[in-house]
């Protein structure tokens, strides 16, 4: 028997975890959907009933809503996944389920990183689709001929069409993994008040890290000036290299945090 990973056992574990975690998950998803609908409804109600005229700024609430609420949603889910291991009666049953620590950890990643991000994107997409389609049917005349050509374009654009990442796509993809990894670690590291404690820890850590970087940079570069001269080495695509660099850094940090989380799960005692 493979004591590290078995696909059938992993499938059973996902099913079992859904029984335990699914209710919290669906409630959180329901709350998220409710809040997004409320925001859309509150912001667009006047337009939908024809009380106000459409303005390009009417849909500007979507970006902060997506970012702030998306962050809250995935972090709350991640922060609650291993939280029960802080409670003795729940921890005993969970740790003794005949699945490997690696499978239990992977199930955690599946629910907190993949499923939560996909679920949030899906509900945001669906709600945006519904409201924007309705808006388009209310304002069908908001088509105009753009200045360069003659192709008509609607001013009422679906959120994901408007905000499709044009560059740094890989970074947009890795960021949810990084954020959830931190809160997943917090859920197993702390026994109580996981979300608050993780947030405070992140703030302190970022503060210290920022302070060190700023002071180091000042120490290294203070009183010096940059000299630009022709170099034989030319970087073809600096943006691409910057993207690869940032992506690799975030990936490395995510992998380190995952490794620590796995170790904490492995060493968890009751």
């Amino acid at each position: 028997m493979n004591n590290t990973f078995n696909i059938q056992r992993f499938g059973l574990l996902l099913k079992r975890q859904w029984l335990e975690f699914g209710k919290i998950y669906l409630i959180t998803l329901g709350v998220a959907a409710g809040v997004i609908i409320a925001f859309y409804g509150f912001s667009l109600y006047g337009l939908l009933i024809g009380e106000r005229d459409f303005s390009a700024r009417a849909l500007n609430f979507r970006e902060p809503l997506f970012l702030i609420f998306g962050f809250l949603f995935i972090t709350v889910i991640a922060s609650s996944y291993f939280a029960h291991l802080g409670q003795k009666p729940k921890a005993i049953i969970d740790l003794l389920i005949p699945a490997s620590t690696f499978e239990k950890f992977l199930a955690g990643l599946f629910f907190t990183t993949i499923l939560s991000s996909v679920a949030f994107l899906l509900i945001f997409f669906s709600i945006d689709l519904a409201f924007v389609s309705k808006l388009r049917s209310v304002f069908p005349d908001w088509n105009f001929t753009n200045m360069i050509g003659t192709k008509p374009e609607s001013m009422i654009i679906y959120f994901f069409n408007e905000n499709k990442p044009k560059e740094f796509t890989s970074i947009y993809l890795i960021v949810p993994f990084f954020i959830t990894s931190i809160f997943l670690l917090g859920s197993i590291y702390f026994n109580k008040y996981h979300y608050i404690k993780t947030t405070i820890a992140v703030m302190i850590f970022s503060g210290i890290w920022g302070y060190i970087i700023v002071n180091t940079a000042e120490l290294v570069f203070k009183g010096r000036v940059a000299i630009y001269r022709n170099s034989s080495i030319e970087v073809d695509n600096p943006k691409l290299w910057a993207e690869i660099g940032i992506f690799c850094l975030i990936l490395l940090l995510t992998a380190i945090i995952w490794r620590i989380t796995y170790q904490r799960l492995k060493e968890k005692e009751v």
Partner: peptide
């Protein structure tokens, strides 16, 4: 301490305090 599935399948632990889900 390694919590291997092969052993966990052969252990039945009835704790004093326990939790059962709402199902």
């Amino acid at each position: 301490a390694k919590r291997q599935p092969a052993l966990l399948q052969q252990i039945c632990f009835i704790p004093e305090e326990f939790y059962l889900p709402s199902v």
